[in-house]
Design a binder for these strands. Structure first.
Lengths: 216, 216
DNA sequence: GTCTATAATTCGATAGAC
DNA sequence: GTCTATCGAATTATAGAC
């Protein structure tokens, strides 16, 4: 199988079962104990392999760590490709995006929490690598889509597409991270319905608060 | 578990200098070490008073903790009152709100970080109290403003005002929390200009992505 | 399991303001 | 003389060491 790789990160692909087991074990360890707290031996043990096997697949703890996140990010990148295309209308695409993004966070909550944790208290170096090499790719994909849609006249020319993309994702991250507490906000009805929330946010982002006055 | 009788939150207000010193010291200790990690003696020492003085002002560690957050929350509540009024137009109010909110996060970064930390890894009980007794008040204020604006026809009737309020605040929290990493997102120009960011988000929330033209 | 260290909380007394 | 902020010592709870 030939990889259509113009990708910067080498994708050994998921074919390797040992690699998959390791990434899964590492995801658990890292998310439960943080980067520093997770030990390679614990990861190896959890994966049912020897410590040296870990270093056969990944040349460093750092590389393994990034691979864990890369794994989830690539998966989401795939979903984005299915959803963001300019032939469909903006509403359909963004609804699908927002809904899938939120769903992705829940389905990959270990890694999502890992990333959020890293963003708060992680090491600078690792953080920059993470953002530039992994997160930026997916973020840019959405920004580019919005920019293209703007070119095509589907989006107002004044809109800052990066700010828009960030707003969309922020809303989901907030929901994912604090769902338990949102229940206690009076007037917030959507705490138990992620999809309805995603739709409400999408509607807001697309149409805004203000009425579309045409009554002149 | 002892029940704190009849919620006696004494509103001595800021007049009491000893109280103020304690709240300030506690803000630092709590935000640096987390709730469990912060000790009453360390707080007392930092404030330059004896340990038992702390308990003269606050009946418990818990009460002190809440008072720290309550302090910053009330301050923001005051700012909201100055900014959210229905006599001005929606754009003006929401711009001012968004900008002040983001500024407030920066000026009270110790407490802001404290809250965000608590939301992630805090104790359930304390979290619920925090949300219901403190955060919900300010959140509701914005939601109510939006609801009133909707009644007044300044906001589309379909909008979910709670979701809108949450989106606005999420965008700011994301920015506050991750400003350092946003620089590394390609295409994101506003990482070093909080006010411009707040304006971009406000514009988005008010007008949305879609052009205003009424296509029948 | 006992012992110990550390932390939260309570008590009783003191000193100064009104 | 009362009121209140303060403090040092005493009390309880708990987690970790041995």
């Amino acid at each position: 199988m030939q990889d259509s790789t113009a990708n910067p990160i080498p994708q050994h692909s998921a074919s390797d079962p040992g690699r998959v087991r390791l990434i899964d074990a590492a995801a658990t360890e890292f998310s439960e104990r943080g980067y520093a707290g997770a030990s390679i031996s614990a990861i190896a043990e959890r994966a049912g392999v020897g410590k040296s096997t870990v270093f056969h697949h990944f040349h460093s703890k750092d590389a393994l760590y990034l691979a864990v996140i890369q794994e989830a990010a690539s998966e989401f990148a795939q979903k984005m490709e299915n959803v963001l295309n300019l032939d469909q209308d903006l509403v359909t695409c963004l609804r699908a995006f927002q809904s899938q993004h939120l769903e992705h966070l829940h389905h990959n909550s270990r890694v999502a929490r890992l990333i959020l944790r890293e963003l708060q208290e992680g090491d600078r170096e690792r953080l920059v690598t993470l953002v530039r090499d992994v997160l930026a790719v997916n973020f840019s994909r959405l920004v580019n889509y919005l920019n293209d849609a703007r070119e095509a006249g589907m989006v107002r020319p004044e809109v800052d597409c990066a700010a828009a993309a960030l707003s969309m994702m922020s809303a989901n991250v907030m929901y994912f991270q604090n769902r338990a507490m949102l229940e206690h906000l009076p007037g917030f009805e959507l705490a138990d319905d992620p999809n309805a929330y995603a739709m409400a946010v999408t509607d807001l982002i697309i149409n805004g608060l203000a009425p579309k006055e045409q009554s002149s």
